[in-house]
Design a protein around this nucleic acid. Structure first.
Lengths: 233, 233
DNA sequence: GAAACCCAAAGGTCAGATGAAATCAAGACT
DNA sequence: AGTCTTGATTTCATCTGACCTTTGGGTTTC
């Protein structure tokens, strides 16, 4: 992923983004464009373009006579997929997964409710297919196959909600699910109750039962919270 | 806002971003860097930097031998504050406000629930102050003052939730609230019921009653949905 | 008709020169 | 002593022209 041939720009951007989100160059520290360009072996043009992109993500601020200042974490564009990827690759991956899971728990139930109202027949079919795929791969250590269907399922729900903002959280949810599966060194099969819930959500959406779809999805996300020891006592 | 002296880069970026999100240059259309640079009266360096930023927002894709292609709307980084601003300034502002309001309705109740658990005494005090400010400005056409307190209120709730992803939606909520107040040509005072609800949310958070804070906030957001004729019959 | 080949077009990269702004410090003034 | 002005310095900002790299598409060849 690091030695991609996407050109110098992408490489430099990746290196800098990772370094900053990983905590080298802590907030407040100052970088100089020329210095960076030289140390990474690229021309200033490339470096400036990279800095401009980082600036648009609110990771850094470029001021004359001062240099490129790293901004406080609280100001970063934490919804930028690129930033999310960098942070998930870094040290505070667990913290990040928690934040994202809490967001999921807020959004997905509402999205499922909307999907029950707005899903097209094609989307309903797709959803059912995903759920069946999950059932089929829920036993015998086929965790990778299960993950694929799980991601597809949630992506379809978010898309079917008809809300653009929800739909765009698909990648984010995919990251969370993948992170969860790959983190605990997958030996155990997924919770059968969760599988059942997914099947039931597909049913509820197909039948247009918004309240039920929402409630069932809420149960799914509560399970996800519980796995991370985030639970409302 | 357009004639700022933030330098050529920001100006060019703004012009291009607005043009693309507004629907000139529809998805699939191809632009040439040199052409754009000339038409906007800047050098290629500046144009390249702008294109790189637009690329990082997934608004365009730059490929050799073909040019800068505008990507389909569904791929844009709709959570990028800059993109949101551009789109709110454009023609589909109403649609945009609906999407954002639905997102609010999903996120804010959960955030309020978390705030009830995690808010510091200082945040509780601030919240109460905001609510009182809303009460004080709720009559007599002081809509601008009311708006300020309303925005501050929701921002504090999101911050107090302790969840980074929620906290970052503060600007977004601010845009929605401002858009709402400024759109209907503000003559009437805010709904007294809504004001009361805010006061009660502040109470619930102060008392650590998560369930009540969540439910009351849900009522607030339901009201917001109703105003836009998005309601679950 | 398919595969290999070649060329021109467009972005990608580079390096040098010049401009502009903001910090810091030295000095004058009150 | 404190404040204001001013100027030098530093660093980013911009422009420029050159050259490299990739690639889509047309052409040739078998």
């Amino acid at each position: 992923m690091s030695t991609e041939s996407r050109g110098q720009h992408a490489r430099v951007l990746d290196v800098l983004g990772l370094a900053i989100t990983a905590g080298e160059h802590p907030p407040g520290s100052v970088l100089r464009t020329d210095e960076l360009a030289e140390s990474l072996g690229v021309s200033r043009s490339v470096m400036r373009e990279a800095v401009r992109v980082l600036e648009s993500m609110c990771l850094v601020e470029s001021r004359r006579r001062v240099g490129v200042t790293v901004r406080p974490t609280t100001e970063w564009n934490v919804y930028d997929p690129q930033v999310i990827r960098w942070r998930l690759a870094g040290a505070d991956r667990p913290r990040q997964l928690r934040s994202l899971t809490v967001l999921r728990s807020a959004v997905e139930p509402v999205a499922a409710g909307l999907a029950a109202r707005n899903a097209t027949p094609a989307q309903c079919a797709e959803l059912t297919e995903c759920a069946l795929g999950m059932v089929a791969t829920s036993r015998g250590g086929q965790l990778e196959g299960y993950l694929v269907h799980d991601i597809a399922f949630h992506r379809v729900v978010l898309n079917a909600s008809g809300n653009e903002m929800f739909a765009h959280l698909g990648d984010l949810v995919a990251e969370v699910l993948a992170g969860r599966t790959h983190h605990r060194i997958m030996f155990e099969d997924p919770d059968p109750a969760a599988v059942t819930l997914h099947v039931q959500v597909a049913e509820a959406v197909r039948e247009g039962d918004a309240a039920r779809a929402e409630e069932l999805t809420r149960e799914i996300t509560v399970g996800a919270l519980r796995e991370l020891d985030i639970l409302a006592p």
